[in-house]
Amino acid sequence: METGTSRVKRGMAEMQKGGVIMDVMNAEQAKIAEAAGATAVMALERVPSDIRAAGGVARMADPTIVEEVMKAVSIPVMAKARIGHYVEAKVLEALGVDYIDESEVLTPADEVFHINKSEFTVPFVCGAKDLGEALRRVQEGASMLRTKGEPGTGNIVEAVRHMRLIMSQIRKVQNMSKDELYHEAKTLGVSYDLLLGVHETGRLPVVNFAAGGVATPADAALMMHLGADGVFVGSGIFKSDNPEKFARAIVEATTHYDDYELIARVSKNLGTPMKGIEISKLSQFERMQERGI
């Protein structure tokens, strides 16, 4: 009997496919998310749009909140640790969370190194803007990936950019010859073996979800259309007028992402989605996606 094998950790992410993972800040929100059909919840002290508004240093959530959420629902509970913060991750593992997000939404603890995730029993999800970042995170032991769409903006444009780039890089790698692959591994800063795997299978070695800026059911469906395996929704749900209805609509639009009549139906009368921020209005220092490459 073996725990924490890569098959067990990656398999857990496979079970999330086609699903929606929702940010929640307390037990009540977690129950709403579960009742709406979320496949997991992310326990947070503040959602990204509040983190952005508050400024200062954003850290791992208070363990009380994480435990409260774990007690409230039977679906998996995820929580965020700062990039490179080994101890926050160990604390979350000790609490028994089901997945750790080593996340750029929090203020990075280490500007050079990510956590060595392969030595943990609990699996990790990490953000990636391109194939190089994606494979570097997998090399460090990430069992799941997600785009690094600009968190808390309600603007899907960056998540779209990341998903499109990764998909096009995969197609390019698929068509390379062996000698081109050696060079490409060097250019991307990734191991040759991992790149060879992408070349042979035409896909990433782990599940890749959309995250950052998903604000409507149509946004979620767009990301699925572009090849995402599932969707993280952060500020979008509990910053909307009617979180319960909104959450259910996102779940349905993710499952039936190519049924446009259904998406039209679930999108009716959802009230005002979160206001959103135009990306070009953010300074380079406010762009969370530049953290931890």
């Binding site: 073996e2 725990t3 067990v8 398999g11 857990m12 593992e93 089901d98």
Partner: peptide, 30 residues
Amino acid sequence: RNAFGRQRESFETDLDVKGIDTPLRAVFIR
């Protein structure tokens, strides 16, 4: 449901299954 505990208790093992001649590798996730 979740009879083995949380994700850190998920595991894989070799398992005898009636009707299958040699053990299967079985992956248990939550």
